[in-house]
Design a protein around this nucleic acid. Structure first.
Lengths: 253, 253
DNA sequence: ATTGAATCGATCATATGCGTTCATAATTTA
DNA sequence: TAAATTATGAACGCATATGATCGATTCAAT
């Protein structure tokens, strides 16, 4: 058996169960114990798992490798609808911020029809898509790579955003409520989004209805900073009214 | 059996199973082992598969965020050798600049073995590969996207490089000569590379021998800025001596 | 804390696969 | 037909993957 195949088995086993034992893989692959231990050492050195006594546990990275695709497909139809709605508010000649996140990464397909658009983003999947369309001018915000997010964060990134000014920002959040405003489960991500809000004229928050009136870990902006909330039709009419009364333009299909 | 047919068999087997063994194809095609190994070597140099001990696995180029498709395979073996040599000069804990270009983008495979490396680059393919390895800390230089180059350029990028300092820089050039120094066929690319040189302690120039004593459009650095020149063994011994006399450490296989 | 069992890393041994070189056969070109 | 080029094969020494051993370390139950 080719060693590469063994490593595949190790990583996929780990992905399913989160934990594995040397003995278990040893029998499954019909090789000696020390060979498996050598594999584990190698995979650990690449950061793809974490060794323990008698086996290994899943690492964040391996998790990312397997679940990023899954995550983007969760609720995909809703996300695409939201993005399509958002794209209606883009005009020829706009300079726009695009935040990172699985929702926002789907917006690219709706913006390549513009001939004179400038996009500024910290999202690698967004750039990965836009790079195919040379007529869309795009800039990437520099800084540290957050592997599991496929995006760029950190103080340098936050500082870099200040070098740009956009007329529209399309941002995401993990939670939004009238009382606590926008919140995120990651501090660094929150800082980036806050900066995008600060440096743009008009702010569009894209988030599906499941996140409305939910709060996450880090609060990063008041609801008044948002001009438009683009969401799906599952939002309740009471919530809709409350947000409108607060001066937020709620956009649904 | 015609060699083209064998290669078809190899690639379609690989497409179905994701993995193959030399012995298996050898029997199926009724040729010697070494013939199959030669086929595998050739197909690998075209980026169509990845060789392993005893066989090959499917090329994973498909799931990359960014890839060069054609140019990277020109002279690929030489480029890989040069990168492997370069990686020998990387130490644990280093902070390194990696320039963009098809040669440099191959260096990633040799640096993931380090546990405490920090990489700063403007190359999207480099980031695309390193993002899989969370133990490698990486930063992307921000700025404008150059679509055809899969990299980041422009005044903001140039300015951003100044925010970093590396102890080693691994750079490329389109031409290098003792008289005119390093040159590039693109002004923006030259500016980025120049900044990397300025902001690092030790500079490694990676270029194949075909570029030695050639001049390109934009001169961007004197030869004295380079501490090491890593190239292939086809460099002539006279040239080698001349460069050494100039104080350049020429590294060949 | 003590002790026994399991696991670990280091070292050495071995088998298999590898690239290099040279030789031969097939194919193309002159 | 002769020469040159290409494809293939065989032999050799080298490199890699794997396995066995053994003392050290860790774990867990007492």
């Amino acid at each position: 058996m080719i060693s590469e195949l063994r490593k595949e088995i190790i990583l996929s086993t780990l992905n399913e169960t989160g934990i594995l034992y040397t003995q278990e893989i040893m029998k499954k692959c019909d090789v000696s114990e020390i060979t498996i231990r050598r594999d584990l050492t190698e995979l650990e050195s690449k950061g793809l798992l974490i060794r323990t006594h008698g086996g290994a546990i899943k690492s964040k990275a391996a998790d990312m490798l397997f679940t990023y695709d899954l995550k983007i497909n969760q609720n995909r139809q809703n996300k695409e609808m939201i993005c399509q709605l958002a794209a209606n508010y883009i005009d020829e000649g706009d300079i726009i911020f695009i935040d990172c996140g699985t929702t926002l990464s789907l917006i690219t397909q709706y913006i390549t029809r513009f001939n004179s658009l400038t996009v500024i983003t910290n999202s690698l999947p967004v750039i990965s898509e836009l790079i195919k369309y040379p007529h869309v001018r795009s800039s990437l915000i520099g800084g540290e790579i957050a592997n599991e997010r496929q995006a760029i964060y950190g103080p340098i990134a936050e500082n870099n955003i200040g070098m740009y000014h956009a007329n529209k920002a399309f941002i995401g959040a993990d939670g939004v409520s009238l009382k606590n405003g926008l919140s995120s489960y990651d501090e660094k991500e929150a800082a980036i989004t806050r900066k995008m809000i600060e440096n743009s004229d008009e702010v569009f928050l894209l988030c599906d209805s499941s996140k409305i009136e939910k709060n996450s870990f880090v609060r990063f902006a008041a609801i008044t900073k948002i001009h438009h909330l683009i969401t799906d039709k599952l939002v309740s009419s009471e919530q809709l009214k409350l947000y409108k009364d607060f001066g937020v333009d709620v956009i649904i299909e």
